[in-house]
Write a protein that binds this DNA or RNA. Structure first.
Lengths: 223, 223
DNA sequence: TGGTGTGAACTCCTTCACAGCT
DNA sequence: AGCTGTGAAGGAGTTCACACCA
């Protein structure tokens, strides 16, 4: 399969959600028009994306939902079992631990870390909280691949570096800090403030209905 | 000021964060190179963005931080007082109520709504939780502009419609549901699952490919 | 020298137009 | 008719190259 351009990938992720939804309602096919209108893009675009991942549609019916799901799951690495560790067991951290839908994607939070000693060795939503000093040891033994940063911005950079030293290859960053990390580490910035400002901006302009989507991803690198 | 293309807007939001950060360290100027390397984009890009919002730089010095902040605040409608209502007082909702940084942008959560009757008229982080039936009445009297959806996907569509009926013009949607709403309503999807899948995809591909939901790709690096 | 400013070239993405399948 | 498939045109965003300024 050819390399997927970023914009297509982004649309395809949302197609995956749509396909999942369709499966629960036992819809076997989705037309490009249906997908396009829900995603807020052009029909042709959807067809091009489908061609890109080599999904063939049937005229008058649409694209087969089950094949879409299968294809997209292998494409995106969904369902592969992966372990994550959480840095920050505050309100946001707790919400992430209790978010029921991550397991669908094969991702499980193995343990959490905190600076605040009061929380050490307590349980949050069934997850044990350790001191940050234990990070290297724990992440290594768990063979965790993903690090989730849910702490205030001042400490984000330091914790991210620690995660990388502990062997983490992908960071899901909920802090507004722009992280500087060695090459090869993938960072997904889920900065809520950026999201809020985007919304404010669109309200300000008062333009018709706009659909904007979450954060940014990057592969930051040290020179 | 000319209309700002979405991609530039995205970058400018992050410039705003950078400028804020610089102000705390009393840096008076930021060069296009410094900004570019942190945002993971080209220098020229940054200069074009600055030209777009009519910020003039000084050769050998860079762009004045204070003017950037001022300009960007008016551009994005930051600091304008706005009221938001929250739908869903679960873990995520609670985290959003307690997120300390939203007030910087003039946004305050006025009240919350819940289906679960056990939570009705209780307080969560200083915010009162009302039954969803009260939404129209409450949102109207508060003159709320923003609705935050932090509930499971099944109910998201219905609640979004209710918000719109209550006069809400901007929706910050944390559920994975793609909302169908009348024109004129601005929706910002902050779907966490999409974010997670994006990260998984990056991990799967390894280094190099970067994707983002809002269309911006970045590879930040240390200066 | 170390930065900004900007037209022009280029690349990538989107939309159009229409052919083909059922 | 109703949909997919795709080359070609069009548009948006990015990078290059170089002028200019302190």
């Amino acid at each position: 399969m050819k390399n997927i351009p970023p914009k297509s990938a982004q649309r395809l992720i949302r197609c995956y959600h749509l396909a999942q939804e369709s499966r629960t309602t036992e819809k076997l096919y989705l037309t490009s028009r249906a997908i396009a209108s829900l995603l807020g893009v052009d029909e042709t675009q959807v067809r091009k994306d489908m061609a890109l991942i080599e999904i063939e549609g049937i005229p008058k019916k649409g694209y087969p939902v089950d094949r879409m799901i299968k294809k997209l799951e292998t494409l995106f690495g969904i369902r592969k079992e992966r372990l994550a560790v959480l840095v920050g067991a505050g309100n946001l951290g707790k919400a992430l631990i209790n978010y029921p839908r991550f397991s669908r994607y094969g991702v499980r939070i193995g343990c959490a870390f905190e600076k605040n000693p009061e929380k050490h060795f307590t349980q949050v939503g069934g997850i044990t909280v350790y001191p940050v000093e234990k990070m290297k040891e724990m992440a290594r033994t768990l063979k965790a691949e993903i690090g989730i940063i849910a702490i205030p911005p001042q400490e984000a950079q330091e914790m991210a570096m620690r995660l990388v030293e502990a062997g983490i290859r992908g960071i899901w960053n909920f802090s507004p800090t722009l992280l500087r990390l060695p090459p090869g580490v993938v960072v997904r910035n889920e900065c809520l403030e950026t999201g809020l400002v985007t919304l404010l901006y669109e309200l300000e302009r008062g333009e018709g209905s706009c659909i904007s989507c979450a954060g940014t991803t990057s592969s930051p690198s040290l020179p």
